[in-house]
Amino acid sequence: MVLGTSKQIVSARATDKQIQAVSQDGGIVTGLLSFALDEKIIEGAVVAGPGEELWKPKPMVAMSADEIIAAAGTKYTFSPNVMMLKKAVRQYGIEKLGTVAIPCQTMGIRKMQSYPFGVRFLADKLKLLVGIYCMENFPFASLETFINEKLGLSTDLVEKMDIGKGKLWIYTQDETFSLPLKETHGYEQAGCNICKDYVAELADVSTGSVGSPDGWSTVITRTDDGDTIFQQAVDAGIFEIKDIDSVKPGLPLLEKLAKSKADKGAKESERRRELGLPVPW
């Protein structure tokens, strides 16, 4: 199936007003990780926290719901979260760990769990892996090009960034700017072009805005544990949910984007293989 293995697919959003105020869409990652933390399912989570420079995130170990909320929102450049997993276990002494990861990061983590050649006593500590949908990621200099050069704005003024409805949206305190996605093409990192995974198929729970109305996210639960934790959070009132078939644009759009990324990735892999370059799939 183009969306990977799933237990349930729903449209959801966090009920907490504080989370709604800071979250990218439905606040699923923030809500789920803080719920897991409060319920002691995890003792800490590796998230993309604020870095020294605005919009340049840095992986951080969040030990409280407040720290998780402080890291809410999508950053469209690198945050090598996987790097921090070992630190979280070794230096923070976390025995039950959660994290948020884009598909390529999910793959690094899962490969480490199945084949932990040089990684000691970490594979079994990861209890909750929340994956986020991802079409591509940008070097920071690409973001600067969009914001500073193409839109003529100062990065410091940007309050929120978003990609949706065919555009990159830049929000300042009182204005909204947009850039058609064809203006961003070619600025993504090259490694993304062979990626076939849009919906984080190997996560415990995957989420992203596509398929759901504004302010909501489409949630796919995949593993038994992921499904259980998400259901517990729904039962606890952390999330309100809607039948995915009842919302617009719904699953067809998500499936379309997932398929287009899979097709493009396969095609680029093939192209590189013909050139004699190494590709992992």
């Binding site: 790097m83 884009i102 490969k111 480490m112 490694g191 590709v279």
Partner: peptide, 8 residues
């Protein structure tokens, strides 16, 4: 052209 900066 394979790196995505995942940090693994």
């Amino acid at each position: 052209a394979l790196c995505t900066g995942c940090g693994t």
